[in-house]
Design a binder for these strands. Structure first.
Lengths: 133, 133
DNA sequence: GCTTGACCTTCCCATGATGGGAAGGTTTAG
DNA sequence: CTAAACCTTCCCATCATGGGAAGGTCAAGC
C-alpha cells in the first residue's frame, strides 16, 4: 500500500505519516524499488492508534509511550492506566482554566451594554490589568 | 523606563515586549540616545491590557482588535461585546471538546485493572482506531 | 509511443506564542 | 577601573500541522 492509500485507510494524511516517521514515532517505512513507501496492515493499525490517541488529546510524547506499551504484549496495564489518568488530570485542569476565563468574561459581557455607547466594562477591566474578578 | 523596568511594571517580560512590537501589536517604542527602548505610563497600561487579555485566553489577533477599540474613545461597546462573546463561544466549544475526551478516557480508565496484567481496554480501544465511545 | 494527470520523493518555509542564547554595546555600583 | 547587570539585534527551538517547489514514477487514454 502506497502512502496515499495508507492515509485513506488510516485517516492520517500523507504529510503527517511522513512527519511521524521523521520524528521517530513510527519506524522507517518499508520502501519499494522506486523508493516509494510501502505500508501493510500492521502499519495501518499503528496509524489508526495514533489518530485515535491524538483525537483524545494525547501529546506525541504520550503517544510514543502508549505505542511502546502497545507493542509490548507483556506490558503491565498499570503503566497505561497511569498515563491515561495523568492525561485526564491535564484535561481537567485545562477545562477548569477555560471555564474560569469564560465565567469572568461572561460577567463582563453581561455588564456591557453592547450598543452605540462607548462605555464598556470589558475594556475597563482589561485596562486594569489585574485578574480579580 | 527601560524595557526591564517596563517588564517588571507590566508583568510582560522583556522578550515578549519586543515581540509584540515586532509583530505590530504595539507601535514602535520611543528610543533613547543609546537606542534603548523607553516606556511611559501609557505603554505600561497597554502592556497590562495585553497581559490581562492573554490571561483570559484572547488570541493576539483578538487583542489587536480590542486594543484598537480601547484606543478609540468613541468606539461602540457593541463591537467589544461581540468579540468577547465570540471568544466565550470559542472557549465553551473547546471545553466541551476536552470534557468529551476526559469522559471517554474516564470510561476506559475505569475498565482498566491497572495492575501487572497486560490486558488493557485503553490500548484495545485506541487500537480500534475509531471514536465511538 | 506519447501525453496527461495523479501519484510519489525530499527539502524548505510558515504558523502562534514563547523562550534560549550568542555577539556585541552601555550603564552602574563598588 | 572593573565587573555585573543591562540593553541591542539576530538566529534558532518548541509542537503539530500544512503549503508548496522541484523533480521522479506510474497508469490510462489517445
Amino acid at each position: 500500500m502506497k502512502i496515499g492509500a495508507a492515509a485513506a485507510a488510516s485517516g492520517v494524511n500523507a504529510k503527517m505519516i511522513r512527519h511521524y516517521e521523521a520524528i521517530g514515532l513510527l519506524g522507517p517505512a518499508a520502501r519499494r524499488e522506486n523508493a516509494y513507501r510501502d505500508y501493510g496492515e500492521r502499519d495501518i493499525h499503528e496509524l489508526r492508534f495514533i489518530r485515535r490517541a491524538r483525537r483524545l488529546g494525547f501529546s506525541i510524547a504520550e503517544i510514543e509511550a502508549l505505542l511502546a506499551l502497545w507493542r509490548d504484549r507483556a506490558r503491565p496495564s498499570r503503566e497505561v492506566k497511569r498515563i491515561a489518568e495523568a492525561h485526564i488530570g491535564d484535561l481537567e485542569a485545562r477545562v477548569a482554566d477555560m471555564q474560569a476565563m469564560a465565567k469572568t468574561l461572561g460577567n463582563l459581557v453581561a455588564a456591557c451594554h453592547g450598543d452605540d455607547r462607548p462605555d464598556c466594562p470589558i475594556l475597563d477591566d482589561l485596562a486594569l490589568g489585574e485578574a480579580w474578578v
